[in-house]
Design a protein around this nucleic acid. Structure first.
Lengths: 200, 200
DNA sequence: GTACTATATGGACCCGTGGTTCAGTTGTCA
DNA sequence: TGACAACTGAACCACGGGTCCATATAGTAC
């Protein structure tokens, strides 16, 4: 038995921490929620949180990965157009729609994660490591490449997804204008993939 | 007049601080440069820096505004296509080219500014206040609206400019791939504005 | 040159927060 | 039930942004 099972109390505490963090983030301005707050709300010591999640950013990432599971499931094996089967252009539109909705629904968490990365002290386990972003980028990039092989799919995927993290866009999502953003992305993508999509 | 002139020693120190900050940012990872470092390099006390610039973010903003002057000048009254006179599609392409180059050339400063905003304590004088961004956004938004009145110019301008601040894109600029980014933006914009609004 | 005032200065200090430590506790397995 | 490893959590540390205020000095009036 190489992998010892997680102890029952440890598992309980982990769940408590995640739940407490979720709750606090829903209620408060995300970058005012300190780890101590989370620990207190979960009825646990600060050290425990770090022991479990490594850092503030690690905690946020754990929350994000938990929340994003359903979306990834739908992409990998759900019905088209989000899942496999539809033409790449449609899948891309569907994905961006879904991502915008997902981001809008988890904007506090996203913001908190950004903030955690920005303020973390030992700047080692830096960005790029975020598996959620990597998955999204790979998906978008592949779909663009499939629809329009001549384009720089890798770069365009970064640009499209990157804009979701921009402050001005985030502020828009806080204001509940997710539909507006989704519409804008649709226009941008149809321009890109459409018949008139310019090459250089 | 109620506006007394700045004292000579104060002006000298302000210049010294700006120069020192510029130097340190050029040489070091931007979010490792503390205000104390800047103060020490400029040969002044930490308090002086805060007197002059209010906060870390204020110092960064002052540097940014200084550096961006030439670009704004060229836009407002330089020769086309960057300056007035060219059709909006061309002006937009020229502007984005110029902005990408500008951002690439000042990526350390930009990063430091982001970091300063992210870590600042009294979260009052928050974003949106950045006059440089406002100017850029207004310009892009106006050009899009002129070229394609049916589009949501305001939003699209936020998306286009916002992507410049995305981590993945910033990393690309650190790696010196500004031309690649500029090309991608060009494709995106010509797709947006379509055959009638794109290049000629 | 002197006296006087407004302004500038800078380093000690405060504070909040991410992160670490380690002695004590508790679950697990044999 | 005993032994050991995993877990726990409160005290502690590091560090950087921001503040304070006694002191120094440019500017000015005479």
């Amino acid at each position: 038995m190489e992998e010892r099972r997680e102890r029952a109390d440890a598992a309980r505490n982990r769940r408590a921490i995640l739940a407490a963090a979720e709750e606090l983030l829903r209620r408060n301005d995300p970058d005012q929620v300190s780890i101590e707050d989370v620990a207190a709300a979960a009825g646990v010591g600060k050290g425990t949180v770090f022991h479990r999640f490594g850092s503030r950013a690690g905690l946020m990432r754990a929350l994000m990965e938990e929340r994003v599971l359903a979306l990834h499931e739908a992409i990998a094996s759900g019905p088209p157009p989000l899942g496999p089967g539809a033409p790449p252009g449609e899948r891309l539109q569907a994905f961006l729609d879904a991502v915008v909705r997902h981001v809008a629904g988890n904007i506090g968490l996203l913001t908190a994660h950004e903030h955690a990365l920005a303020t973390q002290r030992h700047a080692e386990g830096r960005r790029e490591a975020n598996p959620v972003y990597l998955f999204w980028h790979g998906h978008v990039s592949a779909l663009i490449a499939e629809a329009r092989p001549a384009l720089d799919a890798d770069l365009l995927a970064h640009v499209l997804l990157g804009s979701l993290h921009a402050d001005s866009v985030v502020r828009m999502l806080w204001r509940g204008e997710a539909d507006r953003l989704a519409a804008g992305m649709r226009v941008l993508v149809s321009g890109l993939l459409g018949p008139s999509g310019g090459e250089t």
